[in-house]
Design a protein around this nucleic acid. Sequence first.
RNA 1: GGGCCCGUGGUGUAGAUGGAUAACAUAUCGGCCUGUCAAGCCGAAGAUCGCGGGUUCAAGUCCCGUCGGGCCCGCCA
Length: 597
Amino acid sequence: MSLKTHTCGQLRPEHADQTVTLAGWVHRRRDHGGLIFIDLRDRWGITQVVFNPDISTEAHKVAHDLRVEYVVKVTGNVRRRPPGLENPDLATGEIEVLAEEAEILNPAKTPPFYINEDSPVEEALRLRYRYLDLRRQRMQRNLILRHRVIKFIRDFLSDEGFIEIETPILFKSTPEGARDYLVPSRLHPGKFYALPQSPQQLKQLLMVAGYERYFQIARCFRDEDQRGDRQPEFTQLDLEMSFVDREDVMDLIERLFTAIVEQVSDKKLLFKPFRRLSYYEAMDRFGTDRPDLRFGMELVDISDIAAGCGFRVFAETVAGGGVVKGLNASGCGGYSRKQIDELTDLVKKFEAKGLAWLALPAPGGAAQVGEEGAVRSSFAKFLSDEQVQAIIDRLDGKPGDLLLFVADRPEIANEALSRLRGTLGERLGLRDPNVLALCWVIDFPFVTWNEEEQRWDPSHHLFTAPMDEDIPLLDTDPARARGQQYDLVCNGYEIAGGSIRIHRRELQEKVFNLIGLEMEDAKQQFGHMLEAFEYGTPPHGGIAPGIDRFVMLLAGEPNIREVIAFPKTQSAADLMAGAPSPVSPEQLKELHLKLDL
RNA sequence: GGGCCCGUGGUGUAGAUGGAUAACAUAUCGGCCUGUCAAGCCGAAGAUCGCGGGUUCAAGUCCCGUCGGGCCCGCCA
């Protein structure tokens, strides 16, 4: 940096009496008429520059014209600040630079929003002027964190014998999974490349190729609707290993993620080692395969008590093969009818028919079930005192608690209660943003029944291996077969998914057969894979953690746009550049395309 | 494809039930000011209330449509 001798975050008392040159942006300007103070900012920090007309009238004149975000170069002497004038909020606060020369390298228009404070700004405006938004402390902090995480991953995996290999962005479309982004081919009229949804096939082929330990910080593309944790293009740590079982992959990832959290972030790990749940256990106890384990409030099955009780909704649900499950919203026993109605509206959004509730009065009220005022409830009056007490005991109900129940098909009861649990956890302040609860979910069902298509779909992807001992079940009872799949879950987000792959052609064909993929179609779509598998394929498996999501959690941000330099909006648009945009008729013609709008 | 929320000087907000000059903070511009660090004090300028239409004597406010942003359902192997 020949235009500056030091950064704006560098100078300390030991630099006193040195002549230095700094360059950066005007962060703030304080004009006293005589003295002018400038907070000069660059990527490394802020340094106060003092312009005193007694030292240099020329420099003082320049300072008079300075405005926020001007780019300037200043040369001057470093000195310790006079006693009592230090600024403890600034890393460089013990010194200041007395300007002797100053040069405006580039003036700046008044920015459309504050850059020198992290005050709220409408997100559309931030995205339109993203290059200015990125100057702000919040974004700078997030992008630096992201860099440190990725650097850490590269170093860690390199030390573990992995090599980073780039795979193509222009690849082949396959109808499985998400919608592909397509790229028309000029040289092959009527044909298209697809941007990869992930380098899945390529990393498996690298295992066939004998690289044994591969990783990549890989950009992935999916043309689906956006969410706060989903962008059309996002970044995965893509990773694959040969001659391993699932314990090897999980062990590696567990060590990596533990080290990242402990060495790169200020968050606390709740579980060490990570907790493990089977898919069925996760569904049973939390109603979801990506539970937020920062708090309890587990789902409890009371179907046995509800069966044949006097409350017809309960009894008939159980009789019809459904379940009655509930949770204990501890301390919410004082909720008003209106508050409970709000919770009811929430579960109804997820197709539950209603929410049964039972509130236990706060301490000091009547004690025994059966006595006047012992409970408020939407259904207790239909049950015996013993049944009510059994339910309270089952949910460990204490005075002041609110017990909430959904009676429905298991999928609906789980979904509704899981959402309810999340909302209550948030409302009760149980989701500590400084804590990361990492857990493995394993033993997923190998396939799930697709009602509309009347066929089995792979739970993960179609190269995932079933558990060895469950292979016979593929012929007899596919629903009970488990896959060698593992998901890493953190605070209610799925942050990685992976599996041990099928490496034998017979088994792969058996799976194609099971999910109703004709061999002809399979050859058409995956011929290169099937062919490759015939040339000596090692047992292999891998995983793909989402970098954006994990950095979001490490940064404590509410969505992944905050950890992506140039993200897209919910409608997948770039508000800064104006993408997507129309193209010229000449471009279309060259690509052999006609628009049909 | 669907539901909900938001859009008012550059920025962030206020403007119940429609009522006359659209308020506040901050930024901007000018003046004063030699120890501030969110500098201070004085003054000025700055808004066709996202856009289009409608209801009404009267619309920032109510209705319809539309554009943009966000959250969510569907979707995301």
